[in-house]
Nucleic acid binder design. Structure first.
Lengths: 253, 253
DNA sequence: CGGGGCGTTGATGAGCTTCAATGCACGTGG
DNA sequence: CCACGTGCATTGAAGCTCATCAACGCCCCG
């Protein structure tokens, strides 16, 4: 199999123009991700309440502690969400991509930071319009609750990972998660994040992540043609490892 | 200061009768915690849709993976919520007490288990009535979203704790959390859980928890008259430690 | 008095982090 | 075109934190 390395070089500060891609096949000229969240009949009205925005890679567009006066729906690109400590230690709580909500949590101040991992496009809603939206789209309330519920279930799984799993189990869990996200049965993953991001997501260091990647490759579980591209070779074994069903011992060389 | 050890011996299987305590001062004959969640005017109607239940200490009343056909509002006692792995490793994701929701997550199956830590009293709602409740109490939807949001914020803080904090920082965070929960300025905590529970909550072992408790006592941060009773002596120092503001080195003897 | 549950303490070691060096890809400028 | 610098990843060696194993103490109860 032959991969071209995935190019993720930061774009310049020039904002990306909306509507030039990511369109919905059902309702052209609208982002797929918006269609996934709201009913098609609601779209014309909704259109008045959102603002299309674009950020370059590396832009921190939500800062922990700042007033939570807005929220986003990502339409294109990837985002890391994180909490950090005064001395710089960082925990990435999740990655967001097209169709994901960011900042829906009904709180006065943001409890996390968000940074564009790649050039980003999103729809921005102001919280002041949020109450209006809620009244006019009653289904939205239920929808938000479902999103929050899904988040909570994921958060619980991640607490188990961070509190109780070994380095191998963590990385296996991560790869399985990415595999399911990709929806391709071929097992070809294009990771949008660096080793540093993965380490901060799994509560490890870059060195441990790197060593474990290498160990997996030696064991024939994965193949790494390029650092950002991983081919899953044995998803069954990885999945078993992720759940701690087997005690896979690390073998050097 | 003189503490009587907090007695937590399991009660017999005989169900606790409702209405014999935990009453609300505003609307007698109703549990405080229910009043905290619903409007007083809603209570008579609501009363028809809930079922009062009681469990002895140690009862696992929600099992991970089972159909999520009900949810609870705790009215008295304490609960541990946890996820576990096939080999027995366990991560406690939270403790619940009076006025807390358990199982509101709108999911087909429970994603966690819940076990009574002390004799428990709760109001049980069936999910089938939940949709009815939602229609008749429109404010409920918003309320549930607020609860879920608060949970999510807590979950993010806990991911930072589990992924990035040291043992001392974790225990300090735990003590601070309990201190704020107690709402007593005196700093006298009655812990309803064992060292094992604390360890599984913080992603540590009982030995490390015990050693860190002892270290805190040696450093004059706390005093431990009885294992289940802790007197906070220096909340400022504990709080700074919890946030990683200071690098408190462990000193033996 | 004996036994069990829970907690504490000590000794040892595994697993991960830290520190350090090297490699690799890519972009830039002489 | 190639030397050089930078950012990211890999690999090795040493060290530290926390887990593991083990012994003991305390308290409560039959």
């Amino acid at each position: 199999m032959n991969f071209s390395p995935c190019k993720l070089k930061p774009e310049s500060e020039t904002p990306i123009l909306p509507h030039d891609s990511g369109e919905c096949t059902v309702c052209p000229a609208r982002e797929r991700s918006i269609c996934a969240i709201f009913e098609p009949t609601q779209l014309p009205e909704l259109e008045k309440h959102l603002q299309r925005v674009a950020f370059p890679a590396g832009k921190v567009f939500i800062e922990e502690g700042r007033a939570a006066d807005r929220f986003y729906v990502v339409t294109q690109g990837h985002v890391r969400l994180f909490n950090s400590m005064p001395d710089g230690r960082r925990q990435i709580t999740g990655f967001a991509t097209a169709s994901d909500f960011i900042g829906l949590v009904s709180c006065k101040n943001f409890a996390f930071s968000a940074e564009a991992l790649t050039p980003l496009r999103a729809c921005q809603f102001s919280v002041s319009e949020m109450s209006f939206l809620r009244r006019h789209f009653p289904a939205l309330e239920k929808r938000l609750l479902e999103e929050a519920s899904r988040e909570l279930v994921r958060a619980q799984k991640r607490m188990l990972l961070l509190g109780r799993k070994t380095a191998s189990e963590r990385l296996a869990s991560f790869l399985r998660e990415r595999f399911h996200l990709s929806k391709s049965a071929l097992g070809h993953l294009a990771l949008p994040m660096t080793r540093m991001d993965i380490a901060d997501y799994l509560g490890l260091t870059i060195e441990t992540v790197s060593r474990t990647f290498s160990a997996f490759q030696r064991q024939g579980l994965i193949h790494i043609p390029h650092t950002r591209n991983v081919l899953i070779q044995d998803i069954e074994a990885l999945s078993a490892l992720a759940d701690g069903d087997i005690a896979l011992k690390r073998r050097h060389s």
